[in-house]
């Protein structure tokens, strides 16, 4: 870990409009994440964890505040710049894996590289990532022919194949049994330690949260414990 924070959030607010009602999902979040840190975010449903991830990942614009990712202010970004952010700076891992069902594991990973425009460059780390994730013999299988654990490992490979500044994992073990959960969490810790990958992980599970260097708790749209 270095001293310069890779994520710097100040007074982040996000309000949704649901019909005529405005719902405040984030009500002033302050958070710093160091480069190479593995941060766990816990909190009850509706506390704003997922919204924080969606904003951080550029999937939805913030209402106000400051979010610096690698020194760039997300609040000032338009739709095209947020698309560019998702391409190059952020990798997502979802609870439901979210692999493209029509493509093989290898192609699910390859399409992330294609979209980022890095498919023409060689990647010395690609083989290491595949080896680390134990996917060597499963690359030609389609998601429906893979177990949940295998699918989640492919999703992790896809998320980090472009070497993003941050990996956002939203309940990555939520659909897995204990054995596969442990395997996935250990993989993430391994990626963090070996490749220095910055990881933010949402989880309901306090044991899973223990894999991070640090845990923050959210409640009612704010970070209440650091």
């Amino acid at each position: 870990m270095t001293d310069a924070p890779i994520i710097e959030i100040r007074d982040l607010r996000k309000a949704y409009r649901m019909g005529d009602v405005e719902v405040a999902a984030l009500r002033g979040v302050d958070l710093s994440v160091q480069r190479g840190e593995f941060l766990s975010v816990i909190g009850p449903s509706g506390s704003g964890k997922s919204t924080l991830f969606h904003v951080l990942g550029g999937l939805t614009p913030p209402t106000s505040g400051t979010i610096l990712i690698n020194g760039r202010d997300l609040v000032q970004m338009g739709e095209a710049e947020r698309t560019e952010l998702r391409k190059t700076q952020v990798g997502f891992v979802f609870q439901k894996y979210n692999l493209l069902p029509t493509l093989s594991a290898a192609d699910n990973i390859a399409i992330a590289r294609y979209i980022s425009g890095k498919h023409k460059d060689g990647d010395e780390q690609f083989d290491e990532i595949i080896r680390l994730l134990g996917l060597k013999g499963r690359l030609n299988h389609k998601p429906r022919a893979m177990s949940g654990g295998e699918q989640q490992r492919v999703a992790i490979a896809r998320a980090i194949v472009n070497h993003p500044a941050i990996l956002l994992a939203d309940e990555p073990t939520g659909n897995l049994d204990t054995e596969n959960s442990t395997a996935v969490l250990e993989l993430m810790r391994d990626l963090n330690q070996r490749l220095g990958q910055t990881i933010l992980m949402i989880t309901h599970n306090p044991e899973a949260a223990q894999y991070g260097h640090r845990t923050v708790r959210m409640r009612d749209g704010r970070i209440v414990t650091v």
Partner: peptide, 16 residues
């Protein structure tokens, strides 16, 4: 719909 969401999460532009 979900697959389109996945592509968007990966950084696919509307034109893509």
């Amino acid at each position: 719909t979900r697959e389109i969401g996945i592509l968007k999460a990966l950084g696919a532009s509307p034109m893509f």
